[in-house]
Design a protein around this nucleic acid. Structure first.
Lengths: 141, 141
DNA sequence: TCTTGAACCTCTAGTCACTAGAGGAATTAC
DNA sequence: GTAATTCCTCTAGTGACTAGAGGTTCAAGA
């Protein structure tokens, strides 16, 4: 039997977060010692690892709950798991492509002013959405 | 003078969000009509566009506040703007690389089960963090 | 001028996924 | 036996909004 601290160390999930998952119903309420402290078994540990991994993949807790409820499912129900994976993948690809265009823009912004000249123009204007700094150094406001 | 709805339509920032920014001090309190409705000028519109653009780039509101306070700054102060840009860029690149590895993993997960066979193994185990499904179909729990 | 419907007002509370802290009790190591 | 560590519950805070209730004001047409 493991303490909550042990679970936390072995999953990188913080203690309040473990209790939070219990509150949300993602982890079953564990046994308690005579002194009311939580004691977990291997099943709980694996379940927490599963949750953690799903979170790392970007799944919201409701999706994880859905996946957990599929334990032992078969046939058509499994399509739900598959759909969740597909949906997450599409979402992720979209996020990546948007982040990449932001990267290009930030990179441009960062280069726009190397700190050597002392006017407000380049970086702030770039943040403001202008594609370049031309003309007199009008300030933002 | 523009109404809050006009500002919203022209910046894609929702009305409650504009009021929220005002609360947070990112937008100055605008003039009001005799009937207590907000009326904005061009300065406010530009400032909101600036905020919106920064948010699109992923900057937290506190950083945006910092940038806004640099209006009219010169010399060394501008390094702050530059630092914010650099920091955001590094952060973004990190996020992109992590998302890319997640994409690879989700892609594998999604392919692991095409819904044709009726056991719980592939997708759920993949979500659980196992790199493949081997051996008997032991369930997650 | 009146009326009607759209747009506006404030305020509270909800979202998501945690995280921090207070104040106190249990467990573990020596 | 005692001291250090870990644990308990509970409340409230975070960031960046978003939604809804219940009421007021504005603008355009008859």
């Amino acid at each position: 039997m493991f303490s909550i601290g042990y679970l936390s160390r072995h999953t990188q999930v913080k203690i309040p977060t473990i209790r939070f998952y219990e509150d949300k119903g993602l982890l079953p309420r564990p046994d308690r010692t005579a002194g009311n402290q939580r004691r977990y078994d291997d099943t709980a540990l694996k379940r927490l690892i599963f949750i953690r991994h799903c979170r790392d993949l970007g799944l919201p807790l409701t999706d994880i709950e859905g996946l957990l409820s599929l334990e032992g499912a078969s046939g058509r129900d499994l399509n739900q798991a598959h759909e969740i994976a597909e949906r997450q993948l599409a979402d992720l690809r979209d996020r990546i492509s948007r982040l990449r265009s932001l990267e290009a823009e930030l990179s441009r912004i960062s280069k726009a002013c190397d700190g050597k000249h002392d006017h407000v123009c380049a970086v702030l204007h770039a943040f403001g959405g202008h594609s370049e700094c031309a003309g007199p150094h009008t300030h933002l406001k």
